[in-house]
């Protein structure tokens, strides 16, 4: 029962702050809401006993990425936007309906398939403690090539980000 309560609480925090990210006109509030949302997700991972992932979530997202966002927002000195959303009534309506439609479709499909299986909830959570050791063994054996590729990607991103940020006016330089 405590599990259910905590799940709904975390769920509420995540969704509310996510909606705030999307709907609040001021970007700095968006960024803060995002940080809250990330933290909520980390908590969710924690409750799922994925401790390592939860930690990484906190460090990478709530830490590094959010710092980056806030830095950029600060750098730009952004104010509350008068028109935060793009123009066009028709396209707005279309976009909103489509988003809602897709969500309801996925949710509907999920509930239907689980009720047809009839055992959606009966799959018990395995009670094995996920050790970090096990995970890292997997990372360095089965996924070692992807891991190396990831290293190369990160190097390239560092170089690319620096090159982009240093460019004076880019291709439209005067």
């Amino acid at each position: 029962m405590t599990e259910a309560i905590s799940f709904y609480l975390i769920q509420f925090i995540i969704l509310a702050s996510a909606l705030a990210v999307v709907l609040v006109p001021n970007p700095i509030y968006s960024a803060i809401s995002l940080a809250v949302s990330m933290t909520g997700i980390a908590a969710l991972f924690f409750s799922l006993e994925a401790y390592f992932i939860a930690g990484v979530q906190l460090v990478v997202y709530a830490g590094a990425v959010m710092v980056l966002f806030v830095m950029v927002v600060m750098l730009f000195d952004l104010k509350k936007e008068k028109r935060a959303f793009s123009r066009g009534t028709l396209s707005r309506v279309l976009k909103t309906t489509l988003s809602v439609l897709i969500f309801s479709m996925i949710a509907g499909a999920l509930s239907m398939s689980f009720s047809e299986l009839g055992s959606g909830d009966s799959i018990a959570k395995e009670d094995i403690t996920r050790s970090i050791k096990e995970l890292s063994a997997l990372l360095y054996t089965k996924y070692v090539f992807a891991f190396e590729a990831l290293a190369i990607l990160l190097v390239m991103v560092i170089v690319g980000a620096i090159a982009l940020a240093k460019a004076k006016g880019g291709t439209h330089a005067k």
Binding site: L15, A18, V22, K95, T96
Partner: peptide, 14 residues
Amino acid sequence: CIGMFGVLMRKNAL
């Protein structure tokens, strides 16, 4: 879907 909605609707690239 919330994220998707944001991508579709917001003007601010950040």
